[in-house]
Design a protein around this nucleic acid. Structure first.
Lengths: 252, 252
DNA sequence: ACCTGAACACCGTTCAAGT
DNA sequence: ACCTGAACACCGTTCAAGT
């Protein structure tokens, strides 16, 4: 199947794998619409109101245009969300190619940036789980992520497992954290207040007795501090694991 | 705020933290409806058709009843989904309390079971990211999960980080895996065929050149084998990390 | 080439009414 | 106590029509 005759495929894979390139603009359009402008407005709306409230009609209103105008630049809502996903993925700062830095430091920076993306854009997690995520920015991140872990000196057989450990951990961590912050934002309440509210509700009910110590605050830390500490310790642990794996053979 | 007068709260936390207990049935109802039956039907529908296609109207049709009948047993769709989430969480086999087994083995079993839950019910991941997940089954799992990692001998300061590393990794891994299998099932295509299709599309397009080795198959393994291998290696790595962290002080 | 309007087949949920 | 029907305010998307 040549690139030229690739057209509508019944099995949807990804916007990025469709034959059709983004339509290029030639001159001033009536409404001044634009794929980039549409994606930017999408990201803005997703950030401020969340994925659940986002709709093509809402987006069109934001752009001062009819709902159907957007469909000139984008095939479906799914495609648009994929574009928005890749767009914010580009916000992750990637380490320099020829940097002499220790791979542990690079790994820590990259994982923290990944976590940060998932927290500042809580809708990102769901889209990553739903779509293939093979856009250019996602690929650039994946390449950098692989390069950083490869510098640890693991064997090619160990590499994918170690990659999964670090980045899937960061994904899971950022997902739960993002869900929590989004919920608080939606309720118009601080994270610490929300936690107090939940622990309060749990204390009132006898059936939650044995799980109380898992939910409450630890010491006098704020929720944010607790989480950053746990994230750092988890990364330390993963890095220590990678170092311990180095030179191990398959069945030891 | 006593348990008795807790009523509708503008800040939604979770079904499990609402004052109202599940209404208990007294005799034969006209349609023989039931909270358990509703939740079971919900799980069945979510498994077979996915979260995107699930609706209260679709569920009602499955139960042979009007859409609004369900609302007698459940306040909102969100509440129902929370109930379904906790219901399948109970499918995870938990290790015996007084087992003399090595914590590494228990951890491997529990993490694998967690991954398995996320893959067999691909809708679970999204709900875990969206809701608080403090239902009884989720709490039982969390308790067991904590007990297993605690047996590794880490300090109380290290414990939450190590927990996060292992279980958030399993969550992230199962999420991506579940999303992939769901996509294949929806398209009516095998996972290996889907992968071949994607790699084929990537080979056709020059802009994906440098990311080709990250997507393709490795050796002659099937997709499923590759993933299990990576998952196991990642867990080995995490366990090695936990062992290396043992006895380390805060800043070493 | 770009944008609109009406229409179709859906949603979750409220509310008054039936039995 | 339990279930229904009509209605409200939404969806994503198609399709014919405008400029």
């Amino acid at each position: 199947m040549a690139a030229a005759d690739r057209t509508k495929d019944p099995v949807r894979t990804s916007v990025w794998l469709e034959g059709r390139p983004a339509p290029r603009r030639r001159s001033e359009q009536p409404a001044g619409l634009d794929r980039d402008k549409i994606v930017a407005a999408t990201v803005r709306l997703l950030d401020s109101e969340g994925l659940a409230k986002f709709s093509m009609r809402r987006l069109a209103a934001e752009l001062g245009v009819t709902a159907m105008s957007v469909y000139w630049y984008v095939d479906t809502k799914d495609d648009l969300l994929e574009l928005a996903l890749d767009s914010v993925t580009g916000e992750i700062p990637l380490p320099e190619e020829n940097e002499a830095a220790d791979w542990r430091d690079s790994l820590r920076l990259l994982a923290a940036a990944y976590r940060n993306l998932l927290v500042t854009h809580p809708w990102v997690s769901r889209l990553m789980g739903e779509y293939l995520n093979v856009g250019p920015q996602a690929m650039a991140f994946a390449t950098a992520a692989q390069r950083v872990v490869r510098a640890s000196g693991l064997t090619p057989e160990q590499l994918p497992g170690a990659m999964a450990l670090v980045y899937q951990f960061a994904y899971g961590f950022g997902t739960i954290e993002g869900g929590f912050t989004a919920r608080c934002q939606e309720a118009g309440i601080s994270q610490d207040d929300f936690l107090r509210r939940v622990t309060g509700a749990i204390e009132d009910r006898p059936e939650f007795e044995e799980s109380r110590d898992m939910v409450g605050a630890r010491g006098d830390s704020t929720v944010e501090e607790m989480r950053t500490r746990d994230f750092d310790i988890a990364l330390d642990c993963a890095i220590a694991g990678i170092e311990a794996m180095r030179g191990r053979t398959a069945g030891s």
